[in-house]
């Protein structure tokens, strides 16, 4: 079986399930809105990071990216949907690769557009507080943000394939992202730096300290994502559908 028809079919699945384009729209709207709010907040704190403030809408916004990845996979674990899908595409590895691709590409592109819009919206509010940002830093922030959102969507997709449930995936990841990371949040220099979301968010900062830099942080997130996808693929290939 060739990969192209499988990609077309999976892409059509994403497009024809209203909640999925909806999740991407929510990703854009929530991120830009929260970044715009951050743009008009107090910038006098000495530890203030104008790049992170501009992109901080991603922290709540990533929930939508995680939902996108989780629901795209978990919709297959509803009733006999997976059996129908695997009867059409019996090569499970190929099928799952196509699924991951049609999650990754839109998540990345929407993430990129979202980050750019968030940055512009926040800078309009920050005014002089954001003048210190170089073009290089801003490009790194926007591209990194797109990649980060893509990796989080894929991470959720891998977990959803492993747990075979969207509800289980979201009730694991959403509290994790919102609570666990937030609570141990600013304690840098610990193992918390290597959590999938914390590590990847370094790319959103103008300044950073500790062992990881922006790209190595994103690489740590990529490793988590790869592990989740491999675990999901392993479960899918091993189990009866």
């Amino acid at each position: 079986m060739e990969l192209t028809p499988v990609l077309r079919s999976e892409w059509l699945k994403i497009r024809t399930l209203r909640s999925l384009p909806g999740a991407l729209l929510a990703l854009f709207a929530a991120t830009v809105a929260f970044s715009a709010i951050a743009g008009v907040s107090d910038a006098s704190d000495p530890g203030f990071d104008p790049l992170f403030a501009s992109l901080s809408g991603v922290i709540p916004g990533q929930i939508a990216a995680v939902s996108f990845g989780a629901v795209a996979v978990s919709s297959e674990f509803h009733q006999g949907a997976l059996r129908l899908s695997l009867a059409a595409v019996p090569r499970r590895g190929r099928w799952f690769a196509a699924k991951a691709a049609v999650i990754a590409v839109p998540a990345f592109l929407v993430g990129l557009v979202t980050a750019l819009a968030a940055l512009l919206a926040a800078r309009a509010g920050l005014g002089p507080a954001a003048v210190g940002l170089s073009t290089g830093e801003q490009v790194r922030g926007v591209v990194g943000c797109g990649l980060y959102l893509m990796l989080m969507a894929l991470f959720a997709a891998g977990i959803a394939a492993l747990l075979r449930s969207g509800v289980a995936t979201l009730s694991l990841l959403v509290p994790f992202i919102l609570v666990v990371s937030f609570v141990i949040g600013d304690a840098t220099g610990t193992v918390a730096d290597f959590l999938p979301d914390k590590a990847g968010q370094l790319v959103l900062r103008e300044t950073y300290d500790g062992t990881l830099g922006p790209w190595s942080g994103l690489a740590v997130t990529a490793l988590w994502t790869a592990a989740a996808l491999l675990a999901g693929a392993w479960r899918l290939r091993r189990r009866d559908a």
Binding site: S9, E10, K13, Q79
Partner: peptide, 28 residues
């Protein structure tokens, strides 16, 4: 081979036509 295993397998949020188009696309 065409098979019907479970009539509930089609996702409720898709239209019948889209459901079939998705399957059709994967097998050209």
């Amino acid at each position: 081979v065409g098979a019907l295993l479970d009539a509930q397998a089609a996702h409720g949020s898709r239209t019948a036509r889209d459901h079939l188009r998705v399957l059709a696309a994967s097998n050209r």
